[in-house]
Each structure stands twice: as C-alpha cells, then as structure tokens.
Design a protein around this nucleic acid. Structure first.
Length: 117
DNA sequence: CAGTTGACACCGT
DNA sequence: AACGGTGCCAACT
C-alpha cells in the first residue's frame, strides 16, 4: 500500500472522490469534472484521476470504470488490470462502448451532485 | 525543496 | 469547428 493521502478525514479530497464514485448507480457513468465540481474543487478533475489511480490501494471496490472524461471516452482503461476490463465492466452494466467511447453517453451520464441533493 | 507529472477541463485563436 | 495552450491541486521523483 502506498502513501495514502494525509487527509483521511471527511474533508479529504480523495475520500470524497471515493465516496462519490461509489455512489454512482449501476449502469450509469459520470465524468472527472463532475466529481471534482461536486466535491468543491472545480477544475481539479486531474486530482480525481489521481485519486482513482490510487484507489487500487483501497480494500473497497471503487467503480472507477464508471468515471470517464467529459467526452465520454474511456481514457483510463489502460490503467486497469486489463485494458479491456473497463469496457467489459461497462458492457456488463448495459453501457455499450464503441471504440473506447460510451454510446449515448449523454443519456447515461449521471451527475453526482444532483443525486446528493 | 523545487520541478514534473497526471485516468481532465476550459478558454483563446 | 478544430487545435493548442493554460489552469486546476496533490503526489511523486
């Protein structure tokens, strides 16, 4: 296990990312920017990616495959154990992926902040 | 301690 | 409309 973020408390940026990510419903997807904005760090989408990169250290299973970029492209697929795993998981949930892009992404998109309200 | 990187997003040209 | 440059914040080297 690598260095976990110092802020393990509720205020922790990473913790929020994980919590929000785990909240993504089955068969839905969201974007890095949406998560970042939801946790009060607009523009920090890159940090969300970082958090997810570190999610492998967690015991909890983080549905990181449901987090994609604003274009609906599976930019992080290469970071999974198997490059095809991300697409495979999405397909399992009924989210069709074509050429590393989520089909009907706009329809599948789910705003975490919207749900929290 | 300072520079670079990173699973992105937005603005300007 | 497409492309390039810049900003975001934290971790890594």
């Amino acid at each position: 296990m690598k260095n976990l973020p110092k802020n393990n408390d509720q205020e922790g940026f990473f913790s929020r990312v994980y919590e929000v990510t785990k909240t993504i419903p089955f068969g839905r997807v969201t974007t890095y920017g949406a998560i970042a904005r939801c946790i009060g760090a607009p523009g920090a989408a890159r940090m969300v990616g970082w958090a997810l990169n570190n999610c492998h250290s967690l015991d909890e299973h983080i549905p990181a495959h449901r987090v994609i970029n604003r274009n609906g492209i599976l930019t992080g697929k290469h970071h999974f154990r198997h490059s095809e795993l991300m697409q495979q998981l999405l397909e399992s949930e009924g989210v069709k992926v074509d050429n590393d892009r989520v089909v009907d992404f706009k329809s599948k998109f789910w705003d975490p902040c919207y749900n929290l309200i």
